[in-house]
Design a protein around this nucleic acid. Structure first.
Lengths: 192, 192
DNA sequence: TCGACATCTGACCGATCGGTCAGTACAGTG
DNA sequence: CACTGTACTGACCGATCGGTCAGATGTCGA
């Protein structure tokens, strides 16, 4: 792994655990075993480092959003696959998801966070399977935020959580339940 | 309102919007229109200010937890009232809830956050209405985190949210649904 | 009139912040 | 050999951080 990649990795973990504002360039440099100047050689500024660290996650989610229009024909049938893909993507990028979820209030002007907000809006709009009332939108928001939050919690705190495989099943099931019409019984799929 | 109370109020809002680490004593003083020294006269340190600002919320939630044993006889019947009270308490203290939810990773050693974690554990344990399996505990966590998160979002960002009354209904309904056994149909109450 | 006390302030402290810059070490290329 | 570009570093900058302290001001009851 190159020094640059090590810095990105360390920054992602630091930002997720202690917050962007609670992390200093010096600390990240110490984690990697390099100097502050080295970090600032690879990245123009602290904010540029945050941007670079968040980019792979935002790209993956953008890909997901890009694939949405093809599914819109039969929303109800496509929902399980979409939710599964969404959950898998979140779980594969839990550190960046943690940063986005817990700090998007404080980092409202940061481009990566702005981009994340747009992505979430697009996904939420697609996942609503009935007429988008306030009620269904809010229910889905609860599910989305809750899932993202547990993911964040699992990656940043020490206390116990279910196994990833177990969490994945429960996330998918619960999200589907929250975005289905009231009487809908949902079957979960074991694989995407 | 006394200067001390004004400082508490301003601190709560600042911490919720920009994070504890992202807020300085000087900024809070400026919000109130006083000096940094004045803030440090009323509170021994920045952390003591956070503690004092969170205390009313933690006290309210502690009261809620204290009332729990009396309800344990018939959990299923008591759940709607408990959930309603819980939601109302959260909504009455949205700024402090926001601080707790979004920053408890970064502030793990702060007494107020430690206390909050204990409270949440107690409430979650009580709200689980069937045998506490991993699945039900995780589902409830999703609901709890999701509700708290939307509350935090509503108090710190500018974008639109449903009216408080509408949110309250949806929160109660969704939380009950997530902590009920699978087949349970739940009736919500309009008042606590 | 005289302390006693609460409230508040500006000057100041050492530490750390994000960031700049000149310069070093080195591998590759002609 | 000289030259170039990449990777990296330590010294340094002004600003701000949380916090201390000596005093200024006003309001009390004695």
């Amino acid at each position: 792994m190159t020094t640059r990649d090590e810095i990105l990795q360390a920054a992602l973990e630091r930002f997720a655990r202690f917050g962007y504002l609670g992390s200093s360039i010096q600390q990240i440099a110490d984690d990697v075993g390099t100097s502050k100047s080295s970090v600032l050689y690879h990245f123009d500024s602290k904010e540029a480092l945050l941007e670079a660290a968040m980019q792979p996650t935002m790209d993956a989610l953008t890909d997901l959003v890009g694939a949405l229009p093809a599914l819109q024909e039969d929303k109800l049938a496509a929902a399980p696959a979409l939710v599964t893909r969404f959950v898998d993507t979140l779980m594969a990028h839990s550190a960046a998801v943690s940063i986005f979820v817990t700090q998007r209030g404080a980092l409202q002007d940061v481009p990566a966070i702005v981009r994340g907000n747009q992505i979430v809006d697009a996904i939420a709009a697609t996942l609503v399977l009935e007429a988008p009332t306030t009620r269904t939108l809010t229910r889905l928001s609860i599910g989305l935020a809750g899932v993202a939050f547990i993911l964040a919690d699992a990656s940043e705190t020490t206390h116990e959580h279910p196994s990833p495989a177990e969490m994945r099943e429960i996330f998918i099931e619960t999200l589907l339940e929250l975005c289905m019409p009231e009487d809908g019984t949902v079957e979960t799929r074991k694989d995407a």
